[in-house]
Structures are given as structure tokens and as C-alpha cells.
């Protein structure tokens, strides 16, 4: 069986700096993989390469057996992979529902102009990530950080992905908000969503993933169950700055 997401021998060089050094991993359907490592290890760069925002120097990226490594970002998303960002990026002058509307849009000018807007779907998505009904017509500036993360998740879900890449979903959240988002991700997992998750909050990350890989200075240093990776000497050393 082909893996849902397969990254092979990924290399990214920025001038003299090797940001990603021969990284390979796979994510099976319904699986959830944690990508951990200290600041500057190159986790977000890997995300950006998978999404095509940064083009890899060499290596391949396959989604459900298809090579997506040379496609533009929007095409990759149409193929069923999407991501959230460390800093949520809502459309500031739009309501919550309009933000989700952009995620739901078909990539066809005629359909944009003549097609019907699916208001029910917009609302259902917003409510499914736990946004309150009274927040739907608010602008993003009126939302808390937790609600902004939910909006970002809803907009990402709107593109109907089969794999979601979550980048620091817990950053800037209160304890209560972390619990909410964590519950949300777990319920999405129960429904069969596949995840690749980056987080510094290892405690919050643990219940969300089956496996983990650790990255340090652009290289994969460990792979296995979350516990195995956390106990790995090289990983401990990298977090302690060794």
C-alpha cells in the first residue's frame, strides 16, 4: 500500500546553509505524526517544502502515490493537503464566515461568479471547530487567539484536505484553549483525518500523535513512538542545547 504522504531524501540549501539535510519519512492514512525539534531545527522549512511555498533543492514529495514536489501551492492544496501557520493569517476585513468562504471557493472564475454560495456549509464548518454562533459575523480582530486558531482550522478544513499540517497550533493559547483545540484535533482523528503536527508544547502534543520524528539542524535524529523519541539521547541532548 502506498503511504498517504511520503517525503524522500528532502534537501534544502539556502546558499551555504543546509536547512533540510536528507530528511525522509512517511505518514500513513489516518496516522498522526509529530515533528519535533528545538528552535531553528528546520521543522517549518519542511512544512513549507511539502506545501510548495519553498522549493526543495532535491528530493521528492508524494501524496497518495502522486508526485506533488513540483506543483504550485494551490494545486497541492487541490490534491488534498493543507496547513495552518504559526501565526494565524485571517482576512482582516472579512467576517468569520467570509473567511471560511474563501477556503470553500472553487478555483474557477465562472463558478465563483455564477455558482451558489453554500452558506450552510460555511456555518457548519465554523460550528464544527467550536466557534460560537454569535461569533460568525464578527471580524477576526474581535476574536481571541484560541478562536483565531479555530478559524484557521476551519478555513484549512474548507479545502477538504486528506492530510493536515499543523504548525504550532498551541502557541499563544491559554490552558483552557489548548484543551479545546486538543479535543478538536482528537475528534478529527477519530473521523480518520491524517495529521503532521509541529509543536513546542510536548505535553499537549503527546495525546495527539502515534509516532514522532525528531529533527535537529535539518537532520532527522530519531524516529519511533512518541515515548521512544522523547527518551532518545540525541533528542534530549538537542533540546538541552548539546
Amino acid at each position: 500500500m502506498t503511504s498517504l504522504l511520503k517525503v524522500s531524501n528532502l534537501v534544502k540549501k539556502f546558499g551555504g546553509l543546509t536547512a533540510t539535510h536528507d530528511v525522509s519519512f512517511t505518514v500513513e492514512k489516518g496516522d498522526s505524526l509529530a515533528l519535533i525539534g528545538p528552535n531553528g531545527a528546520g521543522k517549518t522549512t519542511i512544512f513549507s517544502q511539502i506545501m510548495g511555498e519553498v522549493r526543495q533543492t532535491s528530493g521528492t514529495i508524494h501524496l497518495a502515490g502522486q508526485d506533488i514536489g513540483a506543483m504550485p501551492t494551490a494545486t497541492r492544496i487541490r490534491h488534498g493537503i493543507s496547513r495552518t501557520y504559526q501565526v494565524p493569517r485571517p482576512f482582516s476585513d472579512m467576517t468569520v464566515l467570509e473567511n471560511i468562504r474563501v477556503g470553500l471557493m472553487p478555483d474557477s472564475l465562472t463558478q465563483m461568479v455564477f455558482g451558489r454560495i453554500d452558506h450552510d456549509r460555511e456555518e457548519a464548518l465554523a460550528l464544527s471547530v467550536g466557534l460560537a454562533p454569535q461569533d460568525l459575523l464578527k471580524s477576526p480582530s474581535e476574536l481571541s487567539m484560541g478562536d483565531l486558531r479555530k478559524l484557521e482550522l476551519a478555513r484549512t478544513m474548507a479545502t477538504n484536505p486528506s492530510v493536515m499540517l499543523l504548525d504550532e497550533v498551541f502557541a499563544g493559547l491559554t490552558v483552557g484553549e489548548i484543551a479545546q483545540i486538543s479535543e478538536l484535533i482528537q475528534s478529527m482523528r477519530r473521523e480518520g483525518m491524517t495529521f503532521l503536527i509541529v509543536s513546542h508544547d510536548l505535553k499537549a502534543l503527546e495525546p495527539l500523535v502515534d509516532r514522532a520524528i525528531a529533527i535537529n539542524q535539518g537532520q532527522k535524529v530519531a524516529e519511533g513512538s512518541f515515548k521512544e523519541v522523547m527518551d532518545n539521547e540525541a533528542v534530549v541532548a538537542s533540546y538541552l542545547g548539546g
Binding site: S82, R83, R89, P90, F91, V102, M105, V113, G115
Partner: peptide, 24 residues
């Protein structure tokens, strides 16, 4: 129409429009 919404969205955050799977 949604074309207008999408064009406004480009004005606010072009990256995020691309991140919504639209060919900007």
C-alpha cells in the same frame, strides 16, 4: 460575487488566498 470576495482577500493576504487552494 465570490470573485469580488477573492480579489479583496488578495488585498488582505495573498499568501493565505494561495493557501486556500486558489490560483492567485
Amino acid at each position: 460575487t465570490r470573485l469580488g470576495t477573492a480579489l479583496s482577500a488578495i488585498g488582505m493576504n495573498e499568501e493565505a488566498v494561495r493557501g486556500s487552494g486558489l490560483n492567485t
